[in-house]
């Protein structure tokens, strides 16, 4: 018999479910009194979006992007500049930053995706340093000194504090990112990406237009990283290039999917929640350098010893259990 297709939620149902979960989460958290919670939660959500975005190219397609910080910073700086120039509302800033970062992804991909995968990886590092140099020399965006962004005094939708509003926006963006990732995963597009990851030559010879698919994946992934950066200026209100291009974004965006598991949308989310929370705790209790050391050690440990990540353990455990019964 033809083995039955695994019964799973349709994309629409999944999207509705994710929205409901997100809404409940966002509303429920409003009862929390401590504002620090929202700062920490915002950061964890930021990482969730970044690692979900990274995974679309890294996990689904097998192309390593070290330039997460660059795409993130594109989102950050497009918000700063457009806000300073036109005072655009947050919604438009989010869309603009996403588009600019996505276009940057296409540009970089067009230059380097024809080559073997590690050239792309090296080029993403190059992009980060080039953009960093450009931004430090761009006076309008604050240059090396940095830029202040005045948080609007009026908090929209009656939120008591701006950070609570930002947190809620971020929950929405995270839901969006996860829904997009899951749709890709289960689509014909996603199957083409998986074929590229498994064997690019065989994929091309099976009719997969590999270059075009990689470009689209890079654009979506880069755009989503930009998306994560768009609200950031309002979160920290003072942005300097060193902070916006911090390597910790690149490292976390790789470490979280590697630790969580790279084949499904759940892996990066799981990795971001676990690693992000641990970092928030260590940051308060010990120091941020130790924090980064933990991330680095976990990254190297998982990638050498448990390449399937936590989801790999879960799936293996489920497979064992279903065999027994």
């Amino acid at each position: 018999m033809n083995p039955p297709v695994k019964v799973a939620l349709s994309n629409t149902r999944f999207a509705i479910l994710a929205l409901v979960v997100g809404a409940v989460l966002a509303l429920g958290c409003q009862f929390i009194q401590n504002d620090y919670f929202f700062n920490a939660a915002y950061t964890v959500l930021l990482y969730a979006i970044l690692s979900t975005a990274w995974n679309i190219l890294g996990g689904y397609t097998g192309y390593v992007n070290f330039g997460t910080a660059a795409f993130f910073a594109i989102g950050v700086y497009s918000s700063i500049v457009l806000y300073k120039a036109f005072h655009l509302p947050l919604g438009l800033l989010i869309i603009a930053g996403t588009v600019v970062a996505g276009v940057a992804g296409i540009g970089l991909g067009y230059l380097t995706l024809r080559l073997r995968g590690h050239f792309f990886a090296i080029a993403t590092l190059a992009l980060a340093v080039m953009l960093f140099t450009f931004v430090t020399n761009w006076d309008y965006a604050g240059g090396a000194r940095g830029a202040y962004v005045l948080v609007p005094r009026e908090v929209p939708f009656g939120f008591p504090r701006y950070i609570r509003y930002l947190f809620t926006v971020m929950v929405g963006l995270t839901v969006l990112a996860i829904v997009v990732a899951r749709i890709i995963e289960r689509s014909r597009f996603g199957q083409g990406l998986a074929a590229i990851r498994d064997d690019e030559l065989a994929a091309e010879c099976a009719g997969v237009p590999t270059l075009r698919l990689k470009l689209i994946a890079t654009a979506i992934s880069g755009g989503m990283m930009g998306l994560a950066g768009t609200t950031f200026p309002f979160f920290i209100s003072f942005v300097e290039p060193v902070g916006a291009f911090d390597l910790r974004y690149a490292v976390n965006a790789i470490a979280m999917p590697v630790i969580g598991g790279m084949t499904t949308w759940l892996g990066p989310l799981l990795g971001a929640i676990l690693l992000g929370t641990v970092q928030q705790l260590v940051q308060v209790t010990i120091s941020s350098a130790w924090n980064l050391l933990i991330v680095g050690v976990l990254l190297v440990g998982f990638v050498t010893l448990a390449p399937e990540g936590i989801m790999g353990w879960v799936l293996a455990w489920r497979a064992r259990r279903s065999k027994r019964s």
């Binding site: 990886a121 130790w290 390449p307």
Partner: peptide, 24 residues
Amino acid sequence: GRGALPGLAFFFGILFITEVVLIL
């Protein structure tokens, strides 16, 4: 037989660990 790409993440981690240890 794992390709060069997971190896990239490995070396990236080493780069990062060395840097942090030197900072510490």
